[in-house]
Design a protein around this nucleic acid. Sequence first.
DNA 1: CATCTTGGTAAGCCATACCTTACCGTAAGT
DNA 2: ACTTACGGTAAGGTATGGCTTACCAAGATG
Lengths: 103, 103
Amino acid sequence: MAYQDAFTALGDPTRRHLFEAVAQRPRAVGELAADLPISRPAVSQHLRVLADAGLVVSRAEGTRRIYAARPEGLAELRDWLDRYWTDVLDRFAAEINEGGEDA
Amino acid sequence: MAYQDAFTALGDPTRRHLFEAVAQRPRAVGELAADLPISRPAVSQHLRVLADAGLVVSRAEGTRRIYAARPEGLAELRDWLDRYWTDVLDRFAAEINEGGEDA
DNA sequence: CATCTTGGTAAGCCATACCTTACCGTAAGT
DNA sequence: ACTTACGGTAAGGTATGGCTTACCAAGATG
């Protein structure tokens, strides 16, 4: 539920792919699996991780389950990123004044 | 180098911790290792992953190596996030409209 | 009711990601 | 020059995570 889980969930390339797919438009599990080189159960398991992290939600539609991206999940990531974004920029400016280098 | 690598790198909780630490202020490897329950070589390996992903940079200072966060690395994540953020919001609004008018 | 479709769950295999110890190079102090 | 401090690299063990097949439940369709 925390941003930690969202980051961990999106750490996997396949899950990022799935998330991008449902962000474009809501999709059924079978449709998502058809676009990937892995089995449908594998997709189900990935979707479960994304759902636990609060990044997607699902609704039943007949025997099919439609998955969609969840705005609040992205919001947590955005907040985290914005926080460190400003930290890093501030520190970077301070380093330049002192005369730091990189490698 | 792409946002993909940055996301994968930050998918690990220990690396997120390290990144947050160097985002607050640049730190030496030993200092970072002292705050974690893992060995110093393990920290070195994590820092290498973060560096390869473009999220941190290091400079030598005597026998010590000082690691600092790298603004451009965060920028890539921000761009990705902003893109899907707007996608998700647009789609979410569209879903609500369809569901409300149809039924 | 019988059958088909859709998808979640269980069990198990295997690759990889993470951690450890051991070792080496470099810089600084005495 | 010797020793200490600091940290990167190598090699190897282990645990975690992702994939598969097999199975089961629920809804649609005839």
